[in-house]
């Protein structure tokens, strides 16, 4: 009587694998041949593109920058989004859903539109900077466009909706009674939050930060439009290598490295999480 669920999976798997492998093999295969520009590649197998990637500071710096930016966005999005998700999840009014909906909607409006607004907001003569400088909070106007900080802000606009929605779902599954019990025993709310809520939602936090991190590793539009031509993340570099320089083999190499590194970081976090879980299990 047992359903053969793996049979259900097969058509989807075949289709997805076909699209994934055929498109990626056609492209990534080039990374093992000499780059002759204009989409042309040599005939002999070689790893010189990979050697070049790992010996050239341009690519290595870009890899490090991409990881750093993505990690920063993941941490900031989590740090800001978690309390938001928590407040919304514990709100007793219908407004919580309206607010949640608004956050998601705002998050998904394409950055192409938002970037114009961001330029105005952070312009040195703009209201924000006049307030900041006028009130003496800052000495010089805050300019983040064309800086990594601006790219971080742009990416956070994009990831916040995902994060809040995912975390909201996680926190909702934690019974409110747990907090109330702890509070009755005299624990202050902050302690309850840090000792009960955060540990219980840790798996959700890890999953959410990985999703945010992965999204940022592949994001092109924010870095290209807000980076002001100075923030060369790997996707920006890939676009430039393939489209401007028509170096498809080198572009394929950069993108193979980007994918591998992202997968490794994911695998590593899952592994560390599993170890951590086991240790906690033993202590308890």
């Amino acid at each position: 009587m047992k359903a053969r669920w793996h049979l259900v999976l097969i058509p989807s798997l075949l289709l997805s694998l076909f699209l994934l492998l055929s498109s990626q093999i056609a492209f990534l295969r080039g990374s093992f041949f000499k780059d002759l520009r204009l989409g042309r590649i040599g005939t002999e197998l070689t790893v010189e593109n990979y050697v070049r990637f790992f010996t050239d500071s341009l690519y290595l710096d870009s890899l490090i920058l991409t990881i750093r930016l993505s990690a920063t966005v993941a941490i900031l999005t989590l740090a800001i989004g978690f309390p938001v998700a928590y407040i919304l999840a514990r709100m007793r009014s219908r407004w919580s859903l309206v607010l949640l909906a608004a956050i998601i909607a705002a998050s998904f409006i394409t950055i192409v539109i938002k970037v114009l607004g961001l330029i105005i907001i952070f312009s040195s003569g703009g209201t924000l900077n006049r307030l900041l400088v006028g009130s003496g909070l800052l000495e010089r106007p805050l300019t983040i466009m064309g800086e990594p900080a601006g790219v971080v802000v742009g990416l956070m606009h994009f990831t916040m909706g995902f994060a809040v929605l995912l975390l909201y779902g996680v926190i909702k599954t934690i019974p409110r009674s747990l907090e109330e019990a702890a509070e009755i025993h005299g624990a202050p709310r902050r302690r309850v939050f840090l000792r009960v809520i955060v540990p219980l939602s840790l798996p959700g936090i890890v999953v959410t930060s990985l999703i945010v991190f992965n999204l940022c590793m592949g994001a092109f539009t924010s870095a290209a439009l807000i980076g002001g031509g100075k923030v060369f993340t790997l996707p920006v570099l890939i676009q430039q290598t393939v489209i401007m320089q028509t170096r498809y083999a080198m572009g394929a190499t950069v993108s193979a490295v980007l994918m591998t590194v992202t997968l490794l970081i994911n695998a590593l976090s899952v592994f560390v999480m599993a170890r951590f879980d086991r240790r906690r299990g033993m202590v308890a």
């Binding site: 498109s23 056609a26 492209f27 999703i211 996707p235």
Partner: peptide, 13 residues
């Protein structure tokens, strides 16, 4: 996996 492929690469490939 599709989440980890930069969109430009998806387009070209």
């Amino acid at each position: 996996a599709p989440l980890q492929i930069p969109a430009v690469v998806t387009g070209v490939s």
